[in-house]
Design a protein around this nucleic acid. Sequence first.
DNA 1: ACCGTACTACGAAACTCGTCGTACTACGAT
DNA 2: ATCGTAGTACGACGAGTTTCGTAGTACGGT
Lengths: 105, 105
Amino acid sequence: MGVMSDELTHPDRAEIRIEAVLHALADPVRLHYVREMDRIGTGVACGAIELPVTKSTRTHHLRTLREAGVIWVRKEGTARIATIRRDDLDARFPGLLAAILSAEN
Amino acid sequence: MGVMSDELTHPDRAEIRIEAVLHALADPVRLHYVREMDRIGTGVACGAIELPVTKSTRTHHLRTLREAGVIWVRKEGTARIATIRRDDLDARFPGLLAAILSAEN
DNA sequence: ACCGTACTACGAAACTCGTCGTACTACGAT
DNA sequence: ATCGTAGTACGACGAGTTTCGTAGTACGGT
């Protein structure tokens, strides 16, 4: 029971909607998460970034980011490695990601 | 009772927060509104843009946009004229507005 | 086989948000 | 002064979100 062996679902490039991306990044926790991923660089283990929320809340936010098309998550052992979908976001909404990530305070 | 003679409050440039802007523009009604204002050009009477919502809902959305710092609203007779705060947004978050407005579909 | 780590799933509680109707104020014209 | 138009204020409802705790699955080591 509880399948969970399925691969994680991601929208493909053409399916990414600007409203979903804006909504995903409007949340302080998720924005912080994406900024940390941007700062650290390459794929990050989901748990490696400290957040003021519990594990299950983190799972929720990561799903929101993934389903909006902001990040790509792949399994690696027991860990989940997340990367920002720069190519797809830049192709769909040129300049958006850079504008948001470079906005300090 | 009910003052309302007060001028409309706007955040000044330095107070505009990226999260508030993203949240404001993540709503389909508000995004449509701002896109229409962008298309039409100069200051627009609030009621001149057709929306699938009632007057009071429109007021609500316009307040959200105004308080986020996305639009500037001035009174002119009984009408309210709204303009996009391009200068302020471009100064705070270069490229953000252009990226969002040019995102078709 | 067992244990620990990493994360997901599900349900619940508190909160926020979008929407509306109704009642109201403000202004302009007749 | 009266009426119509333009918009706001307030309260309410329903839907969705954020958050958490608890329970469970998956993988890697010993």
